[in-house]
């Protein structure tokens, strides 16, 4: 590898995944080439400054963790609150109005005189069992056309 190419790649060789042969070669080159070793040192220096991390104590850690857990807790409370809101706002009124409608339909209407037959044309809502049976029993058989014609001829 030429020196110029190496200068570009030197940091990759310095800290990247390389073969043992490449690593040894880079180390040997760095120890003998002042230009390259200066480039690496210079980079390490300003990277250390630009990417310096803040110092965090255990107390910071505790405060931070408590804040995160509190946020999670309040998010969960909000989520369950919103489920409750939906239940209160929609489900309960819906259930109530359905119950009222069912009560009116099954209890009030069938007991209103003349209304039940008018609605269905049958005794479906009637509380009288006989009336209901009568409504569902087959109609009496009428005379066939042939029988009618025969009776006319006889007359």
């Amino acid at each position: 590898m030429k020196h110029d190419e190496l200068k570009v790649k030197i940091l990759g060789l310095y800290d990247g995944p390389v073969t043992e042969k490449e690593r040894l070669w880079a180390e040997k080159h760095l120890s003998s080439c002042a230009d390259c070793s200066h480039a690496v040192e210079e980079y390490k220096n300003f990277a250390g400054i630009l990417f310096a991390l803040p110092t965090l104590s255990e107390a910071d850690e505790d405060i931070f963790t408590n804040k995160v857990m509190a946020r999670i807790k309040s998010a969960a409370t909000e989520a369950s609150q919103s489920v409750l809101d939906i239940t209160v706002r929609w489900f309960i009124p819906l259930l109530g109005s359905t119950a009222v409608a069912a009560w009116v339909f099954f209890s009030i209407l069938p007991n209103t005189p003349g209304l039940s037959n008018a609605i269905n044309g049958s005794a479906f809502f009637s509380s009288d069992a006989n009336e209901m049976n009568a409504a569902w029993s087959p109609a009496p058989a009428s005379k066939s056309n042939e029988e009618i014609v025969v009776s006319w001829i006889k007359e």
């Binding site: 991390l53 803040p54 965090l56 850690e61 931070f64 963790t65 857990m69 999670i72």
Partner: peptide
């Protein structure tokens, strides 16, 4: 065992915070 999440936060707090800070 949601309280175990606190342990996970502690375990990675410095790394996440460091990354965000950088």
């Amino acid at each position: 065992h949601t309280e175990a999440y606190g342990d996970l936060v502690r375990q990675y707090h410095k790394r996440v915070m460091g990354y965000c800070f950088s």
